[in-house]
């Protein structure tokens, strides 16, 4: 059983839910990335997502895209981010997943890159933009390393496509609360129905993201799902902070109050 499976199995056993903060790797510095990842577990996160900076992040709104451009402009490379993660991994048992465009995965060697992610301490990968043909080519390596593999399900995704997607998911499924790009507020309207549709095809944990920016939104998201992902709201707070690490940890601490309290 992979690390992500272990985390969700333990949470489910006690009726808990996961908070999954997203940060852009290297934003604003690789040292800050390390410090945030080392502190997130105590702040209440079960799993953290690290977005690898990409020059053309189509799915991301201005906040995350801007952070990625800043990181690349500063000369930070993918290897720099992997080093920052490896350093943090020595000091935390929190789950770590990489959110990475297939443009990077492919150019860095597909399966070889999955191994590099695992070596850096990642327990899983989220590929938001890969053709399923490409996912199928990665799965043998992902499975051999017992990593999670999360594909996105959108409000526009048809049931037939949901079935095809969840067959390729390992660890957890990533559900988009709404169409569009990251960083826009969303209502959770219709979330229950979409969760029910997904449940017809898989028992994997479901993490919901896009537009969650408060502890109340976290609470609402985890009523129907196993995990709440907080991305743009956190990246925005980090972007404007005097002390980015403290701000990141304080923000996650505040968001975690939306999680159910365990008996």
């Amino acid at each position: 059983m992979g690390r992500i499976d272990t985390i969700f199995t333990a949470l489910r056993a006690e009726g808990g839910r996961a908070l999954m903060p997203f940060i852009t790797g290297g934003h604003p510095t690789t040292a800050a990335t390390t410090a945030m990842l080392e502190g997130f577990a105590d702040a209440g996160a079960a799993i953290a997502e690290v977005g690898l900076p990409f020059s053309d992040p189509i799915a991301d709104g201005p906040v995350i895209a801007g952070a990625m451009h800043d990181v690349l402009h500063a000369g930070t490379t993918i290897d720099d981010v992997l080093r920052a993660v490896r350093t943090a991994k020595a000091h935390t048992d929190m789950g770590l997943v990489a959110m990475v465009s297939h443009s990077i995965v492919h150019r860095r060697g597909d399966g070889d890159f999955i191994k590099q992610l695992a070596d850096a301490g990642f327990d899983g990968i989220i590929v938001p933009d890969a053709d399923l043909v490409a996912i199928d080519a990665l799965l043998p390596t992902i499975d051999a390393l017992q990593m999670s593999c999360s594909l996105l399900i959108a409000p526009t995704t048809t049931p037939a496509r949901i079935e095809a997607l969840v067959q390729r998911c390992r660890g957890f499924v990533y559900l988009l609360a709404r169409a569009g790009i990251t960083g826009q507020r969303s209502s959770m309207d219709g979330l229950d129905q979409r969760v029910n549709t997904i449940r017809q095809y898989t028992d994997l944990p479901i993490a919901v993201g896009f537009g969650i920016d408060s502890s109340a939104a976290v609470a609402q998201a985890v009523e129907a799902c196993d995990a709440a992902i907080v991305g743009s709201a956190l990246v925005k707070a980090i972007d404007t902070a005097q002390d980015p690490v403290k701000t990141a940890l304080d923000t996650v601490t505040a968001l975690a109050t939306g999680l159910p309290t365990l008996a």
Partner: peptide, 18 residues
């Protein structure tokens, strides 16, 4: 949508239905 090894659909899921 493939021309040999080239082509495909490498886009965010939201666009697949469109």
């Amino acid at each position: 949508g493939w021309f040999g090894d080239f082509g495909g659909r490498f886009v965010p899921e939201t666009l697949i239905a469109a």
